[in-house]
Write a protein that binds this DNA or RNA. Structure first.
Lengths: 196, 196
DNA sequence: GCAATTTTATAATGATTATTCTATAATTCA
DNA sequence: TGAATTATAGAATAATCATTATAAAATTGC
């Protein structure tokens, strides 16, 4: 019933993710977004509202593809392997991240969460989802004997979540293999049943 | 030999720390700094150079008082207590931080380190200092029998450092006592010698 | 008290910020 | 084909950004 848009909204969303992920929210200007997306200001505002709305759209999609999809993937593995796999995958991603972009959720947790209730709510949800992923794995592993049943499952899950966040911080400054792998080793070793 | 300045440079530095700590570098405007310090633009630029220089001065002082002084304090305790004390102190600080400002070093690690080599160098130094504090404590504790000697001291130190960073991230979003204390418990329990 | 020097206050600077206005182009339904 | 609708391009907007120019004020050594 009207002129069709010339751009692909998904490609624009991906370009927005690249911008906000690399520089953060404040440091990304509309000008940069226009250059990266190839849109004009009018098209971007017409299609996405304002900068804040575009960020939220990009952020939600990052959470879905960068966090939720990964959790669903590792959740299918046996519990001990699911935990190790998710942690090791995070280390690998950090080491392979040539631009040191880190994790967009962790970055936003520091830049935006304290001053933006909506972003904080989204991040809280992510953190709780990661914690409960670990919690389910630990409990299942304690049942099938692959994880030490003497430890508090809840605290272990929280500790694993915390290590994950800490890795993302360290990696933005010192993305060194020995450091990141060394940091995870004692916590992963802690999972081992008492006998072994 | 000339007109004396009317302001106290140390008070200005403290005001700058408050601004940059609360909002970060980019989000803090010169206007805010002038309001918080009570200075005029001419005075601030005359005395401190530009925004970047003022940040560096504030940041260096934060590192000295907020990190180095604390490390020196806990370093005097017996090794196991030094580790536990430093970690628990960090948890307490996070819980008592009504504005959720977090740690200025961790905040800057994400906002500035990837794009500012000088800041990255300062933060790398801090992270290495924390790691070597933990390393000295772990080794001493393994010698005096208060820490499990079967574990890799280097990896334990790295793990403790990582947990510390992770706490600062979590606390900016979910500053809950049970969460932060629960997250540290397994790693601190890990230190216990095999017998106990 | 005067010259020299530095700090102040005020205003102005040019650049960049996010956002919107105007007009034209491209489509669909009738 | 024409009316309605939406997308585009390009320029304009007002606000804010960090920084500096100008000139008056306050001190010291002489």
């Amino acid at each position: 019933m009207a002129r069709p848009r010339e751009f692909d909204p998904e490609a624009v969303r991906e370009a927005a993710i690249r911008c906000f992920w690399t520089r953060g929210y404040e440091a990304t200007s509309i000008k940069e977004l226009l250059e990266e997306t190839g849109l004009t200001a009018a098209s971007l505002y017409n299609a996405f509202g304002d900068k804040q709305t575009l960020f939220r759209i990009a952020f939600e999609h990052y959470i879905e593809t960068g966090i939720n999809a990964r959790l669903r993937h590792f959740e299918r593995l046996p519990p001990r392997q699911a935990i190790e796999g998710f942690v090791e995958d995070t280390v690998q991603r950090s080491l392979g991240d040539a631009q040191h972009k880190g994790c967009m959720v962790v970055n936003s947790a520091l830049e935006l969460a304290p001053h933006d209730a909506q972003v904080r709510a989204a991040i809280t949800e992510v953190f709780e989802r990661i914690e409960s992923f670990f919690l389910r794995c630990v409990r299942a592993g304690q049942v099938d004997g692959t994880i030490n049943a003497a430890l508090s499952a809840r605290n272990l899950a929280r500790s694993l979540t915390t290590v994950l966040m800490g890795l993302r911080v360290l990696a933005r400054v010192r993305p060194e293999k020995a450091l990141l792998e060394g940091a995870t080793a004692p916590v992963l070793a802690l999972l081992a049943p008492a006998g072994q």
